[in-house]
Design a binder for these strands. Sequence first.
RNA 1: GGGAGCAUAGCUCAGCUGGUUUAGAGCAUCUGCCUUACAAGCAGAGGGUCCGCGGUUCGAACCCGUGUGCUCCCA
Length: 884
Amino acid sequence: MHTNNKKETTHKKMELTKNFEHQSAEQKWYSHWMHKQYFKSIPDGREPYTIVMPPPNVTGVLHMGHCLNNTIQDILVRRARMTGKNACWVPGTDHASIATEAKVVAMLRERGITKSSLSRDEFLSYAWEWKEKYGGIILQQLKKLGCSLDWDRTSFTMDKGYYDSVIKIFVSLYNKGVIYRGKRMINWDVKALTALSDEEVIRKETRQKLYHLKYAIEGTNDFIIIATVRPETIMGDTAICVHPEDERYKHLHGKFAFVPLINRRIPIIADEYVTMDFGTGALKVTPAHDINDYTLGQKHHLEVVDVFNDNGTISEAAQIYVGMERFEVRKKIAIELEEKGILLKTEEYTSEVGYSERTDVVVEPRLSLQWWLSMKDISSPALKAVMEEEIKFYPSKFKNVYRHWMENIKDWCISRQLWWGHRIPAWFDINGKFVVAENEAAAIAQFEIEHGITNATLKQDEDCLDTWFSSWLWPFEVFKGYSQPKNEEIKYYYPTNTLVTAPEIIFFWVARMIMAGFEYMDAKPFQEVYFTGIVRDKQGRKMSKSLGNSPDLLNLIDQYGADATRFGIMIASPAGNDILFDESALEQGRNFNNKIWNALKLIKMWEGRQSKDDFNESSFAIDWFGNRLNEVSLEVEIMMQQFRLSEALKTVYSLIWDDFCSWYLEWIKPGFEQPINTSVYNKTIGYFSELMQLLHPFMPFVSEEIYHLLQETTEDLCVRQYKTAITPDKTILEKGLLLKNTISGLRDVRNKQQLKPKESIRLFIQTENKVVFQSIESILSKQINAILIDFTSENVANSFTTVIGKDKFYVVSEQPVDTANQKSDLEKELTHLKGFLISVEKKLNNEKFVQNAKPEVLALEQKKKADAETKIKVIEESLANLVN
RNA sequence: GGGAGCAUAGCUCAGCUGGUUUAGAGCAUCUGCCUUACAAGCAGAGGGUCCGCGGUUCGAACCCGUGUGCUCCCA
C-alpha cells in the first residue's frame, strides 16, 4: 500500500476511516443542529408545517412502534423544513393515568407501602416524584433517533395550564348538558379497582369450560338444564330465559325454577334474544354481571343481584362463598355442584373473554355509578369532516372503520377510580347533592344557586378523568389554543398538517381529537392522518413485552447506527400495511451507509489530482446523471405527497447505489493514478451533494456528515433548500439506458466466454444508429475493456455474436469462440421473440381490437410488432452466419 | 354472529385509469471475480399456474361473482 503523502499534506485533509463511524457523527450533528436552533420554530411569514407528536406515556420507553412512528414524522418534518416551510414538530408526554398509577403502586409495594395506607396527596407526591425521575426518558431516546423536534415546546398533559383547560372543558360540557352521571354497565378492572372504557378492554380467545347445570322446576320433579361458563355467578341469577319458539321449553313459559344451592325462586321467561342451538337453548340471566343479561333484565323488569365486591371477591348478596376470589369459587362451586348431582357434564369451550389492557385481569361487567359524555351531537361534525375528506385519511380504507364506529357511537365513560390524573371537578355535600365547578370556591357559590344552601361543606369527587379526556385536546392545547384563545401561535400553527399514528387508536384518540377540534376551535385539528402499520416480528407476531420479541432499540441504534435503523424500519413499511421487522434490513441500511462512505473516499482520492484537460469523454455521463437526478427528484416529490415513503426511500437508494456509484462514477473514473478534469470533479461534488440532500430526511446523520466532507461549507444540509427540479431530457435518458443495456449485454458475453477482466476485446457494432453509439463509445470501451470499437455492415469472422435490442455486436477475443453456447442463446431469444410477436399479431389481427382500442394503444402495438420483427430478422441473420 | 382487509418469485413487497413487451424491485440463491472506493464489495445469471373456479371484455394480476386460506376491528 503506498499513498502519496505529499498531496495529503498540501491538501488539508483528514484520513478517511475504513467505514462510516456513526457514533461520533450522530453525536456531533445532533448537538450542532440543536446549537443552531434549526428545530426551533417561531411564527413568521413562511407557510407553517405542523405536526404534534402523539404523546407517548410518560413512563414509556422507546419501542419499535415509536421508532416507526417518529421516523415517519421526522422524514415529513425534515422535508418540509427543506422546502421553504416553517416546520414545527411538538414533543410531549401523556400522563397515562392508569398505566402510570399502576407503576407507582408497584414501586410503592416494593418499598413496602400500600396505596390504601396513603392519603391522596401523599400518593400524588410519590407519583410526581416518580414522574420527575423516570418520566420522559423516551424523549431523550428520540434524540438518538435523530428526531428534529422543537424541544422548547415540550408539553405534558398534566402541566398546570393544560390541567386547567381539561377541567374547564369538563365544566363547559357539563353546563351544556352533555356530561351526566349514570348507573350503567361498565367494564370493571378488579385489580386496578377502576372502570375501563370499551376501548381499554382487550378480547382474547380463551379456553373455558361449559358447565351444564340442573335447575329444579317449581311444583314438579322436572329440571331445566342450562349451560354456563360462569357457575360462580348463579347466586346472581334472577331468571331463566328460553326462546319463545323453542318447542322443548314451550310448556315452561311463566313457570318458576330454583337456583341451585341457594334455592332462590326465579321466573322462566321467553325472549328471542336466546340462541336455540347454543348450549341447551336455556340461558341463566344474571343482570348484574353481563351486559346482555342486564338489557334483558331491564326489558323483563328483573331483580338485580350483585354477587361481587370491587376486588372480584364474592359479596354478602351471594349468601355463600362470601369473601372468596371469583375464580377460586368457580373451581369450588363446580366440585360442590358435582357432588350434589347438579352438574351434569362439562365440555371444553373456547370463546372471547375481555381482559384489562393495563393489568391483564379478566374484566368484570359491573353496574356502577360513573360520569358519562353523550357522544351523539359532538360526533356528527367529526364524522362529516372525514367522510367529505375535509380531513384525509391515508390509506383511505380507514374511512370505513371510522364511519362504522362513529355511526354506532356509544356514550363515553370518562371517570376512572384513580388518583393520578385530572380530578373530576364535582363537589358533593353529605346528602349526595352535587355541583360541577372549576374550583371549590366556585362550587360553594354554585351550590347556593342550585341548592339554596350557603357555605355548604363540600367534598370533591375522588375520581379522575380518563386519560383520553385530556389527550383529545392535544393538537390545540399544546399551542394554548383553549386557555388563551386566538393567541398568535394557535392562529399560525392550527390546524396542524399531518397526524401520524397507529390505526389501533383511531377511536381512542383520532376520532376524539377531531370532535374536540370542531367543538372548541371550530376547525379540524389536522389536514390529514397517516396511519402506520403495526410492527410485527419476522414470524408475523405483534411485538409485545410478554412475548419478548421486541428488540432493544437503543442497542440496535448503537450497533447499526440511527440512519441504518431508520432505513431498516422504513424500507419495509408501505403505508397502512403491517411491517415485518427483520434485522437484516438494518444490515442493509448499514451497508448502504458504507457504500456512500466509499464513494466519498473515491472522490476524495481525486481531489488533489485534478487537471484542466479536455473532458469530452465524461460529458455524456454528466449530462445523463444530471437528467436522472431531475427525473428522480420529481418522482420522489410525487411519492412523498402520496405518503409512499418506503418507495421514495427505495428510489433514492437505487439512484445512489446503482445510478451514481455503479454507473456514473465508473463512467467518469480516470485510469489508475490519472488526473480528473476539474469541472467533472466539481460537477460530481455537486451531484453528490444533491443526492445527500435527497437522502437527508431519511438518513440525516450520514448525509450531513458526507455533505460537509465533500466541500468546505458553513451551510448545513439540515436547512439547505431544495432547488426546483426541471423536466428531464428523455432522449438523454434513453441513451443512458441503451448504454447500460449494451454494457450489461457485452459483460454477459465476456462472462460466457470466460474472459478474465484484464483480457481485452475488440468490438464491432452493426447498427443503424451509428451516431448514437459514437457519442457513448469511449465510456463503452472503458466499461467492457475493449481496445478497439469499430462499426461494420457485415458479419465478422471468428467472433462471438450477440444481439442487444435492435443492434448486433461482434466480440473478438483471444479465446476460442464457443459456437454451440452462442447458438443456443440466440435460439432461446428467438423463441421468446416469436412467441411475443404472435401475441401482438393476434391483437392486431383482431378487428374488434383495432376498432375499440385507443389510438395510442394501437400505435404502441404496431411499434411492438415492428420492433419484434426487426429483432427477429437480426437474430436470424446471426444464426445463419453461425451455421456457415 | 356482524364488518373490513389481504393472497403476485424462497422472503418482503411494487404493479396508481384494464392495453409499455408471455409480470417488476429489494433481500436471499447460484456462477465468476481479493479489478486500483467498497468482499458489509463488483460483474452476471436463474427463479412466477399473479390462491382455485366461473364470468364481463377485442383484451384481466387489475373489474364482477364464488370457493379456499390468512389478518384485523366490532358484538
